[in-house]
Design a protein around this nucleic acid. Structure first.
Lengths: 134, 134
DNA sequence: CTAAACCCTGTAGCAACTACGGGGTCAAGT
DNA sequence: ACTTGACCCCGTAGTTGCTACAGGGTTTAG
């Protein structure tokens, strides 16, 4: 009847894989929690909140180092949030660049799909890769 | 006055990083070339073509194993290209799923960007990560 | 008392490169 | 002849963000 969450409960409560929780601890994103007498980790609600914060950041595509910065800002509410906004804008640009890359791939793939040639010799895809373009 | 390309020339001619050329050889994507008396690699035009094929496949976002398959098809023009088409369709779905993910991120990021709050406490991004959503 | 379900640590694997360390070789200039 | 710089060799480790073992210990329900 110890208090707080076990790592399994924390994982379930936060939606973060159990092994990933330990990983975040190793890289210093999540503080090492207290341990029960048997050596098991015991987490508080604060840990669950922090973990959800991390998960949401990851879902928005932020990298670990960005999230580290954002966590510091969240820990110091008196600081101005200009840095957070800069990270957001930079990341947004990155996301938009990746979308553009993928859209270009998508267009090409659509052009190349639906080929049912009997022989690879006249396959649209193979021709495109083999040919003189670019 | 030896013949063919050195690895440096091949790299420049194909647009593939020199170290990546050696990497492709190691993983068996590009056949090991002949060696000059001094042990340097000597490439033929066939190698340059193959390397360009690989690069274009990568630019379309195909994975290494897909490209391995596509190379085999390109090497056997008499085979039907149904498999290539299947790879293309599967990969297209993958690309579209990734675009959808990124679009969702993009929407959220646009909503969260442009915050210039004096304090992180009321920063839109930090609030979104810290808050009750999801 | 035993079997399932949980927890621990530490290390290795994934994709697809890229970078580095510590060499050898070669061509051109002085 | 000698040096300088550009090239080449190999093997290994680092990158990102996890995930998956292996090989243990613990707890809990029946």
């Amino acid at each position: 009847m110890t208090q707080g969450y076990s790592i399994g409960k924390l994982s379930a409560a936060s939606g973060v894989n159990l092994e990933t929780v330990r990983y975040y601890e190793r890289i210093g994103l999540l503080p090492a929690p207290q341990r029960a007498a048997n050596g098991y980790r015991r987490y508080t609600d604060a840990a669950a909140r922090r973990l959800r914060f991390i998960r949401r950041g990851r879902e928005l595509g932020f990298g670990i180092e960005d999230i580290r910065t954002l966590l510091q800002l969240a820990d110091h509410p008196e600081l101005p949030c200009g840095e957070a906004d800069q990270l957001t804008r930079a990341h947004l640009q990155d996301v938009e660049a990746r979308i553009a890359d993928l859209e270009a791939m998508r267009k090409e793939l659509i052009r190349l799909a639906g080929c049912n040639s009997d022989s690879a010799e006249h396959c649209r895809l193979i021709e495109a890769l083999d040919g003189q373009g670019s």
